[in-house]
Nucleic acid binder design. Structure first.
Lengths: 118, 118
DNA sequence: GCAACTGTACTATCGGTACTAATACAGTGT
DNA sequence: ACACTGTATTAGTACCGATAGTACAGTTGC
């Protein structure tokens, strides 16, 4: 699950992994996350690193924490909605840049969509 | 021209500034760039920092260097074309992510385009 | 040739930040 | 009390950005 060759930090890889699981529906509301310690052992890393990933997930609303008990998935449509908005923001910023350099937005989008089909 | 509050490194800000000037047509083929030393004085920074910006611009094909003479703008359609491809790549990667989470691409694009008009 | 300008190369250092780790602290449940 | 949970603090390491100084090398105009 962790790619040590990857330049991205471990905690970010962990967080993204679980974001994906949650968004895709592989984990559901109130499902328990692995404990910071057990996951640390499993991934051969440090509990603090796992915690940093969990803190990130909590800040972004993917999980919630109960002291002494553990971390749990915060399901619901809000998550999917938020994620959609994140993607939308990225999209808008790319298109704004394109517009600034007077590129034809429709052409650009069509070209991009074409590439994806393959 | 340099924003010291900005978290982005100085050399990157310098490079982006000139990229913009070139892509927008404010600077044309073979126009001379300011010398590394003079620009360093003007920006109250270090010649090495400016050189790092110029090295970046050269690597990316925006300018060319003549030893002893200076740096000059490398104009031409290639630049614009390359920049367009960069934007296209970003666009494709965002849309791929959207697709992965089974979002409706057309809706998403329409929404984004709508936001830009404002 | 010389002076004054251009860019290039290399080394050293300082400061800040990101990442990971080690250790100790604190709450929960049986 | 014990075994589990998360939390906080501190430390070490590594890397990056920026600065500084120095020396070298090509171009141009006088």
């Amino acid at each position: 699950m962790i790619d040590y060759q990857d330049s991205r930090p471990i905690y970010e890889q962990i967080a993204d992994h679980y974001k994906r699981l949650i968004l895709v529906g592989a984990m559901n509301e109130n499902d328990p996350m692995p404990s910071v310690r057990s996951l640390a052992v499993e991934l051969a890393t440090n509990p603090n690193t796992v915690q940093k990933a969990y803190a990130l997930l909590e800040r972004e609303g993917y999980i919630y924490t109960v002291r002494g008990k553990g971390n749990f998935v915060r399901g619901g449509d809000t998550l999917v909605e938020n994620h959609k908005n994140e993607i939308l923001d990225k999209l808008v910023s790319v298109l704004r840049e394109a517009k600034e350099f007077s590129l034809n937005l429709k052409e650009l989008v069509d070209e991009a969509l074409g590439r994806i089909e393959k």
